[in-house]
Design a protein around this nucleic acid. Sequence first.
DNA 1: GCGAGACGATACTGACCGGTAACTCTCCTG
DNA 2: CAGGAGAGTTACCGGTCAGTATCGTCTCGC
Lengths: 210, 210
Amino acid sequence: MKAQTVMKPAKAETTKSEPCSEPRCARDRIFDTARDLFYKQGIRAVGVETIANEAGTTKMSLYRHFPSKDELTAECLRADRAEFDEWWNEVIAKASTPRKKLEALFSAFQSNVCEDADGRGCPISNAAVELPDPKHPARKVVFEHKSDMRKRLQDLCREMGARKPDKLGDALFLLMEGTYMARLVFGVDGPGQVVLKAANALIDAEKAAP
Amino acid sequence: MKAQTVMKPAKAETTKSEPCSEPRCARDRIFDTARDLFYKQGIRAVGVETIANEAGTTKMSLYRHFPSKDELTAECLRADRAEFDEWWNEVIAKASTPRKKLEALFSAFQSNVCEDADGRGCPISNAAVELPDPKHPARKVVFEHKSDMRKRLQDLCREMGARKPDKLGDALFLLMEGTYMARLVFGVDGPGQVVLKAANALIDAEKAAP
DNA sequence: GCGAGACGATACTGACCGGTAACTCTCCTG
DNA sequence: CAGGAGAGTTACCGGTCAGTATCGTCTCGC
C-alpha cells in the first residue's frame, strides 16, 4: 500500500523532543488513521491490526505509542472535542452579540453536519452509543464534552437575556443532537436542514411572550 | 438460505402447531433476550453464544430459528418498531385534535425516554450508529422506521394547519432524536426534560405569525 | 407404537480479537 | 564512533467471534 519511504524532509531544527520524521511520524499516522476509521466504520468494527496496516505500520508501533485500544479511542475523542471547540470559538468570535453568535453557530452547524458528503453525525455521540460501559475511558470524554456544549449554549442564552436560559439552552442542545442523528439516518437531505430555522424560532419565542 | 424462516406465531395458546412449553418456547426466549441485550449492551458487543446462554438454551437452537445474527438483529428492530408504532397510535387515539395529539405525544415521549431508569435512547437509532454498512439488513428497518416517524409528524402538523408542516414536522423530529441522545449521554436529568415545552414553543411559533 | 419435529449437549471450524515478546534496522545525537 | 531511541518484522498468546456438524432425547399427533 502506501509506504513511500524516504523523502528528505530537511527541516528538523533539532528540537530535541520531536523525533517525528517522514511525511509524519508513526504515532501521528496511527492516530489520524484511527480517528478516521473509528468515525467512518465504528469503533468496535475496527481492529488495531487494521488501523496499523492502514497507517502503513504495524501493531507493535501502535502499542508503543498507546497503552491500549481503549486509551487510543479516548485520545481520538479528545482530539474530536478539541476540534469542535476550536470551530465553536472561531464561529462565535465573528459575531457581535449573543443572539448573533447563536445564529452563526446554528448556521455553520447546519452546513457542517448536513453538507459533509460522508458525514456520520457526531463521533462523540456515536461513541456513547457504541461504548455502554461506564468505566470505559472514552465515556469521560463524552460526558465532559456534551456537558460543556450544553453549558456553552445555556450561557449564550443567559447573555442574550432569555427568561429561562437553561431551558432554552437545553432545547437548542436537543436540536443539535437531533441534527447529528438525522444526518446519520437520512443523509444529506434530511430533517437537519431545518435546524437553523428551528433554533431561531425557539429563541424568538423565548425572548417574546409570557 | 432457509425458506421463509422468520415467521412469528406469537398467538394464543393451545393452537395445535404450537410446540412451545416452559415459560415460553425457545424461539421467543432467544428473541426477547436478544432484544434486551442488544439494547442494553449494544449489538456488536453481544455474541450469539451469550444470547443463547442467557436465554437458557444453546447456539444451535438460535440458528434453528434465525438464519444469522444479522437477520436476528433486523428482526429485533422490527419488533422495536412495531412496539413504537403501537405506543404512538395509543397515545394519539386519546387526543381529539391534531394539536392535542402532538402535545400528548411529546408529553408521553418525554416521560418514556427520560424516566426509564436504564434507558439507552432509541434502539433503532443506536443500531444506525453501530451498523454503518448500508447492506446490513437492519439498515432497511432503521430507514423505514425513521422515515415513517418523520412523515407521521409532518402529517400531524399538516392536519393542524401549520403554514409549513413539513419543516415544522422535521423540527419536531430533531427534538425527539435529540432527546434520545441526551438521555443516553446525561441520564435521567438531562436536556430531554424540556422537550415537551420546546415542542409546544415551536408549534405555537409556527401557528402564529409572520 | 411410531415418525416427526423441537430441543439440548458437545465439539468443531476458521477467522479475528487485543495484546506481547524478541529481534533487526536506521538514524540522530553526544 | 558509540549508543540509544524510534521504527519495522515476525511470530506468538489466549480468547472470542459467527456459524456448522453430529448425536441423543423428549414429546406430541396420528
